[in-house]
């Protein structure tokens, strides 16, 4: 990774998807989104607004789904961070990921990782959401391709499948 000359001196480590990563010579203002993508080789979280208005960068920090663009990376050293790369099981698709594919919830795919993380988080806290709960829980994730219809269907499908298990 490129090390800036003169502006970076922060050294710390982050625990992402259960693994500890060292961050060296970083600039203090770097967001968690930047550090994940540009320093830790985890580009799954996407940046599309830099101000918490699109949800593409959603990750889970200590059990809360947050916008990683608004997390100062150096301030989450003692937390557990989960990104889209940490979902699924050893490369196998999670039920949510599979449902997004089956229902046509993916077009350009740029918002998809943020949605996948947000949906996993929703279904962990509300296993059996109704449509209003789904829509409100995902109202911070903007998609400009799908109009959300296929995404709604994907979430409904997972909820139904998990219920019948």
């Amino acid at each position: 990774m490129s090390t800036p000359s003169g502006i970076g001196s922060e050294n710390y480590s982050l625990t992402v998807n259960g693994r500890s990563h060292d961050v060296k010579d970083s600039w203090i203002g770097e967001s968690l989104l930047y550090v994940l993508r540009e320093r830790l080789g985890l580009p799954g979280a996407k940046g599309a607004c830099e101000q918490g208005e699109c949800g593409s960068c959603t990750v889970v920090v200590d059990g809360r789904a947050v916008c990683s663009c608004l997390v100062l990376a150096a301030s989450v050293v003692d937390t557990s961070i989960v990104t889209v790369e940490g979902l699924g099981d050893g490369g196998r698709l999670s039920d949510v990921q599979q449902a997004f594919l089956d229902c046509g919830g993916v077009q350009c795919g740029f918002c998809t990782p943020g949605f996948i993380v947000a949906v996993h988080h929703l279904l962990e806290s509300v296993p059996d959401p109704d449509d209003h709960q789904i829509r409100e829980a995902l109202s911070g994730n903007i998609c400009s391709c799908t109009g959300y219809g296929r995404i709604l269907e994907a979430v409904q499908q997972v909820a139904v499948a998990r219920r019948s298990k």
């Binding site: 799954g44 889209v84 698709l93 990921q97 046509g104 795919g109 998809t112």
Partner: peptide
């Protein structure tokens, strides 16, 4: 309803957008 060949990479976060 064929599947997208880029679908798996897109849901896993591994699909390389130009910004990646």
């Amino acid at each position: 309803d064929a599947s997208r060949p880029d679908g798996v990479a897109k849901v896993q976060g591994g699909f390389a957008f130009s910004s990646d």
